[in-house]
Design a protein around this nucleic acid. Structure first.
Length: 776
DNA sequence: GATTGCGCGATTTTT
DNA sequence: TCGCGCAATC
């Protein structure tokens, strides 16, 4: 037996050794999925399959890099570099670069990120004279994105009666037209957005039989990771690519499908077995990650969902500690509690910072944890948020490079035409845009020929000078590499000088960021291969396409000793010894936006499942009685997910259970004490740093009044938000009868102050609360 | 053409 | 509350 087969359990081995024909690996959380995938690829190669004939697709660069590294390790030679392993987007971008002329795109086509896409939409709205409140760019781009993911082209969109009727109903009849123009504009700009990388790849395969044939025969073995997160385009591409050899291996876990809002369809994995004949199904059900307590709770949660691939995830690990549910007074207290507990766990159990993760539903929840961790002097890092390449100074610099690589890129041009200031104002840019449209030329061409279009002499010269400079950089590309050109750009435009001149703290940071960008270009130019193993081809276009597809998560190769803060979405695929899942409150988790249909709620529950299964040893779940949302202190009920957890393995005694069964919110103090008596917090709890004389404020917080439980009356009808106005008598499902005092907050998110007969004054967010108007 | 100030809106986001 | 985008201003 091969060395690499030793140490696989029977199912893992079955999956690895199944070489020919369709294979579906249902891989539960922590069941050794990556190990199986990488070993299987090594095994394929060991059995004579050429690395050049294997394609493995992932969703993140990080996952791809990890696979590649592990395969190289198993093989112990350089063969792995010939494998095609990468994200859907990066692999397709590479293929599209090679085939671009067939589609009328330049090989150095620009990839538009979501900011670029929004900016294009804004331009179209202005052109069409549409209002950006009705057609919010974020809504429009996400709608266009959904259409593309569902393989609906702009032409099909405008021709589809159903979609047109729907848009008319929703008072956005022009959406199809915007989509159409957006598509045209991207084409004219020589640009593809993220979704186009998939859609154009599909069109390439669908419309060019010789191309299809070429890749069908090149990629004889296809592996797809996280299959439950694929969308219809990805599904179709995989299907046509695999059509000849049918050596397709998909790996996924329907229980961890959490990206439906990005177009993922869980049906892809649920129906894989009907897509091919003789599908071999292997289930990886042994979990190597978590204690049995954690796993049992996770299993109990996911069982509540309907329609899953049946599986029984088990572990031979010890029971471990119970899962603790903690209730705090406010979100700030929640932060303090977590920071305190981390400090204490480090002392008691010798954990390092990097053993902890704090997971939350929304990025905005990170604030209270940041504050408390900082106060405690605990190093932390927030994952997600603005990525390096989204910073303004980086985008500006990169825009020069984009324009040099592709002068059709109008978004890049508009970004830098007057940066640094060179006297080309808004009016001039608008005029250029109009001319470009009328003459059907690019804005760049219009600039070069400024003299012909009636610009004033001075303006005309400015435009031509700018174009000449860009042309000069382009000419440099012949003899110089991307790095040399970038350095020249920094010098000639005066960008570097200008950034250097700003000696404020932020200014220095911006300068350093640009230096870092230059370094990374240098590094890229000098490294033998790209991330997906691509050798050679160190063109500027290739560089730019690559960085656009890079995210923050990809470059944290170093493993500093910090507590990690991230959304649950971002935590998928990761594991930590100690996990805190915060904000387990109704309207937060599950999100108030996702409780209207069973499907939405089930996805929230899968998200909760993902959160729980990140933990190896210890797991805390916390929720706050009240938290600041949009500047207002708002009360939230404990999440329904707390109730859904079985009492065995979960210690909820001091938490939601009590308050929900109506013993009141003010048992928090004793709860906290009990928690610290309970053997894991204990006597050794260190006093909070620098605040030894103070009690932890989550104990000192003022008690909240008891809720007098109210049973809704029979004629309880949920009223429309707009009917709730000051003076109206209302009934709340939980707080009983009361009178509306006033309405505050934005029109989109009104907050009512209501004085209840039994429970006093409360602030209620009308979008979430169920209120009935009391007649008479 | 840059600065300042008001008003409005506010999930999750592998690429 | 916080951050953004636009409009008014110099």
């Amino acid at each position: 037996m091969q060395d690499y087969l030793v140490g696989l359990n029977p199912s893992q081995r079955e999956a690895v050794e199944h070489l020919q024909g369709p294979l579906m690996i249902v891989a539960g959380a922590g069941s050794g999925k990556t190990k199986v995938l990488t070993t299987r690829i090594a095994h394929l190669m060991h059995n004579g399959v050429d690395a050049f004939n294997i394609l493995a697709l992932t969703f993140t660069n990080k996952a791809a890099a990890e696979m590649k590294e592990r395969i190289a390790h198993i093989l112990g030679n350089n063969e792995a570099r010939n494998l095609y392993i990468g994200t859907f987007h990066s692999v397709f971008a590479r293929i599209l670069r090679a085939e671009a002329p067939k589609l009328g795109y330049p090989a150095s086509f620009t990839i538009y990120d979501s900011d670029d896409a929004k900016s294009v939409v804004k331009g179209i709205l202005t052109e069409m004279g549409l209002d950006d409140k009705t057609y919010k760019p974020s809504m429009v781009t996400s709608r266009i994105s959904s259409a593309k993911n569902a393989l609906i082209t702009a032409e099909q969109y405008v021709a589809d009666a159903g979609l047109q009727a729907e848009d008319a109903q929703l008072r956005r009849p022009q959406l199809g037209q915007i989509y159409l123009r957006y598509t045209q504009k991207c084409y004219k700009n020589g640009a593809m957005d993220f979704d186009d990388l998939l859609l154009k790849m599909y069109e390439l395969l669908a419309n060019f039989p010789e191309v299809l044939h070429k890749y069908q025969h090149k990629f004889q073995y296809l592996l797809i990771d996280e299959y439950q997160d694929t969308n219809p385009v990805q599904y179709q591409i995989a299907k046509v690519l695999a059509a000849v050899h049918e050596n397709i291996c998909v790996v996924g876990d329907d229980a961890q499908s959490i990206y439906s809002f990005r177009g993922a369809t869980i049906e892809n994995i649920l129906q894989f077995q009907t897509d091919y004949d003789d599908v071999k199904v292997v289930k990886l059900e042994q979990n190597y990650r978590s204690t049995s307590s954690i796993l049992n709770v996770a299993n109990a949660i996911i069982k509540i969902n309907k329609g899953q691939i049946p599986k029984n995830l088990w572990t031979d690990k010890a029971e471990g500690e119970t899962i603790k549910v903690v209730r705090t007074m406010t979100d700030n207290d929640e932060g303090k509690f977590v920071a305190d507990t981390i400090k204490e766990q480090k002392l008691r159990n010798h954990f390092a910072n990097k053993d902890f993760a704090i997971l939350y539903r929304t990025n905005s929840q990170s604030r209270s944890f940041e504050e408390s961790l900082r106060r405690m002097g605990i190093a932390y890092k927030i994952y997600g948020g603005l990525s390096f390449y989204q910073r303004k100074e980086i985008k500006d610099f990169v825009a020069y490079l984009r324009l040099i690589a592709n002068t059709r890129d109008e978004e890049a041009l508009k970004r830098i035409i007057n940066y640094p200031i060179r006297g080309i104002g808004k009016t001039t840019v608008e005029k250029l845009g109009v001319i470009a449209n009328e003459q059907n030329i690019t804005m760049f061409d219009a600039m070069q020929r400024a003299g012909e279009f009636g610009f004033k002499g001075g303006t005309s010269d400015l435009l031509k000078d700018f174009a000449t400079m860009v042309r000069y950089f382009q000419s440099m590309l012949g003899q110089n590499n991307a790095y040399d050109v970038a350095v020249q750009v920094g010098k000639n435009t005066g960008l570097i000088k200008e950034l250097f001149a700003d000696r404020t703290q932020e200014g220095v940071a911006r300068y350093e960021n640009v230096q870092e960008l230059l370094n990374s270009i240098k590094e890229w130019v000098e490294s033998p291969s790209n991330d997906d193993g691509e050798v050679g081809e160190k063109t500027l276009g290739a560089y730019l396409q690559q960085i656009t597809l890079l995210t923050d998560a990809d470059k944290d190769t170093d493993d500093p000793d910090v507590v990690k803060l991230m959304t649950i979405h971002a935590s998928k695929g990761l594991e930590f010894p100690v996990v805190f899942v915060a904000g387990l409150e109704e309207t937060i988790f599950p999100s108030g936006m996702s409780i209207n249909t069973r499907e939405e709620l089930e996805e929230e529950r899968r998200l909760f499942y993902v959160a729980i299964t990140r933990a190896k040893e210890k797991l805390w779940l916390s929720h706050a009685n009240a938290r600041y949302r949009y500047g207002q202190l708002v009360q939230n009920e404990p999440s329904r997910f707390i109730d859904e957890m079985p009492d065995t393995f979960v210690d909820k005694t001091y938490a939601g259970g009590a308050s929900r069964s109506n013993t009141g919110f003010n048992n928090m103090g004793s709860a906290f004490e009990r928690m610290h008596r309970g053997g894991f917090g204990g006597a050794n709890t260190p006093p909070p740093v620098k605040r030894a004389t103070e009690k932890p404020s989550y104990l000192a917080a003022p008690p909240t009044p008891k809720v007098v439980q109210h049973t809704p009356t029979e004629n309880f009808i949920v009223a429309h938000t707009s009917d709730i106005v000051a003076g109206v008598k209302v009934e709340h499902a939980k707080f009983g009868f009361g009178v509306v005092q006033s309405i505050e907050g934005s029109s989109h998110n009104p907050v009512a102050t209501i004085v209840f007969e039994q429970n006093g004054e409360k602030k209620i967010m009308l979008n979430y609360a169920k209120l009935s108007i009391v007649q008479g």
